[in-house]
Simulated scan of single mutants.
Amino acid sequence: MIDLHSHILPGIDDGAKTLDESLEMARIAVADGIHTMACTPHIYPGMYMNDGPGIALARKVLQAELDRAGIPLKLVVGADVHLVPGLLDGLKAGRVPTLNRSRYFLLEPSHTTPPPRLEDSVFNLIASGYTPIITHPERLTWVESHYPVFQRLIEQGAWMQVTAGALTGMFGKRAQYWGERFVGEGHTHILATDAHSTGRRLPRLSEGLAVAQRLVGDAEAGRMVIERPRAVLQNLAPQGFGLPKKEAARPSRMANWLSRLGWTP
């Protein structure tokens, strides 16, 4: 499997704190069946001042340590990018790295507030030749009132990435409901770990993959962790790796729980 979203680089954001933790995260990932992992630290002006050259150097250093320790995990460059002014210029200049220098990059919306003009911003990025992969929409606090927005973003050409742990309840029942809905209704291109540590947010895909297999079948679930991530790393055109057509929405088993809270999807 390929994991396109991780915070395994030590000491540069809210992910791994030390080299030892990074090495242990890598061991966990390999034991879970992950052979390639994108190093995607946050780039958020004023908080995490990472950039393309710095991330590339940190990846090179960590890869050397993995090789020295005999851990068979391949690392590639990326970033968890926030939607801020100057993003497009940063992508063009290389200050903001794409995934393995492809047209694809991780785009993280604000967790608490819908970004203004989100659809226009994503359209401009796509029109400029990039394919944004929207990270963990199931965990955003505003997803209830904006679910159709994400469907329109997919129609524009954006991809969606659901967190494997959300499907297993790691982030609570609300995120589990929305994760199941994104996957079950056919609105998920990529499943990733968004790993931050060796604790609760560890780099495992297999348990979330098992949920996805129950929701959409083995073939489509496999595309989320093998075929589409490989297409990203090879910079293949997104048109050849689209989502399956759905005749009807598949209800989630979280619907009754949310209904008891007085909210109906």
Rank of each mutant, 00 (worst) to 15 (best):
T131N: 13
A166Y: 11
P115V: 00
L87C: 07
I126A: 06
G165M: 13
L118T: 00
M160A: 04
L91T: 02
L140Q: 12
L153Q: 05
P97K: 08
V84A: 10
T112M: 09
A127R: 15
L167M: 11
A164M: 14
P115T: 01
Q161F: 02
L73V: 06
A158I: 07
E65R: 15
D80T: 07
S110W: 02
P85E: 09
P137V: 04
R103T: 03
L107V: 03
E138P: 08
N100L: 02
H82G: 01
L66K: 14
D67G: 09
L83P: 11
E155M: 07
S121G: 10
G78S: 07
S110T: 04
P109N: 11
G94L: 01
L83A: 13
D120C: 02
S102K: 12
V122A: 14
L125S: 04
L73K: 14
T98I: 00
E155I: 05
A64M: 13
T131F: 07
F105R: 14
A164G: 12
A164K: 15
R117V: 01
V122R: 12
L106E: 09
L125I: 02
I154A: 04
P109K: 03
H136Y: 05
P72K: 14
W142S: 03
E155K: 15
V77Y: 06
